[in-house]
Design a protein around this nucleic acid. Structure first.
Length: 248
DNA sequence: AAAGCGGGGAT
DNA sequence: ATCCCAGCTTT
């Protein structure tokens, strides 16, 4: 009997996802998107597919609440209408527009990115649409690469942020925490597995909806399970109630 | 795997 | 007082 090799995190995640009924994955997505169409907020970056605008919004939104970004987003795009305008400006002017937002490395990275990309790519300073290529740019990690691919180009790309990992793990693997390495791998595997078959509007909407559900219903502090489209199909509420019941 | 990066808002 | 937020980079 061979001593079984310890499974990698990715293998553990793959096994868990493989054990989930495919029809459950599909049903999750259908309900999620139907809910989104009725409940989505009207956010400025949801009205555009301009890759540069999406880029600015995603960079600003890194570890920063939506409500605090909106004004900065509008002001920044007025001051720098295209990626070329960013590339042309000295870093100081870009940082000036960022003043008060925090995490100023984001602004420096945006400036560096602009000077890298604008000459190399299309006339308007267009960004690549492939997450792997996007990942190579300064300030763009796994999440932001997926976000640009799907929100600007409507590609069928998974993305996982704090909202998405919380929602997906609560629904499909409530025993796993987003804070662990396995939890993160699992969240990405679930994000991939729940994506609609086709790209285009469905993929765009699906990813927006995942984040919107995490922001409006499936919160970190409070879960408004009675308003959730997955109510009845999610183990999270039952699990919390069980724990609550035993501890009181 | 863990620390560092900002600061406002919610609990 | 603590946790959380459309995370990424460096150690």
């Amino acid at each position: 009997m061979k001593t079984p090799r310890k499974q990698t995190h990715a293998e553990i995640a793959a096994d868990i996802v493989a054990a989930i009924d495919a029809s459950d994955l599909k049903a999750f997505g259908r309900k999620l998107r139907a809910w989104y169409r009725k409940n989505a907020r009207d956010l400025p970056w949801r009205k555009t597919r301009d890759p540069y605008h999406i880029l600015v919004s995603e960079l600003m939104l890194q570890q920063t609440q939506v409500s605090r970004v909106i004004d900065y987003y509008d002001r920044f795009l007025t001051r720098f209408p295209t990626l070329r305008h960013v590339a042309k400006a000295p870093v100081g002017l870009v940082l000036e527009q960022w003043e008060g937002l925090g995490y100023y490395a984001r602004a420096r990275n945006l400036h560096k990115l602009a000077r890298t990309v604008a000459p190399a790519h299309a006339p308007d300073g267009t960004l690549p649409s492939d997450p792997t290529l996007l990942r190579e740019l300064p300030g763009i990690g796994a999440y932001t690469a997926g976000a640009i691919a799907t929100f600007a180009y409507e590609k069928r790309a998974p993305l996982v942020d704090t909202n998405v990992s919380r929602v997906l793990l609560r629904v499909f693997a409530p025993e796993h925490s987003p804070k662990t390495a396995v939890g993160q791998r699992l969240a990405w595997a679930l994000a991939e597995a729940t994506l609609p078959e086709r790209g285009g509007m469905a993929a765009w909407e699906h990813n927006q909806a995942l984040m919107e559900l995490g922001a409006l219903v499936c919160g970190a502090r409070v879960a408004l399970c009675e308003r959730c489209p997955q109510r009845g199909h999610c183990e999270f509420l039952a699990r919390e109630l069980r724990i609550g019941a035993t501890s009181e």
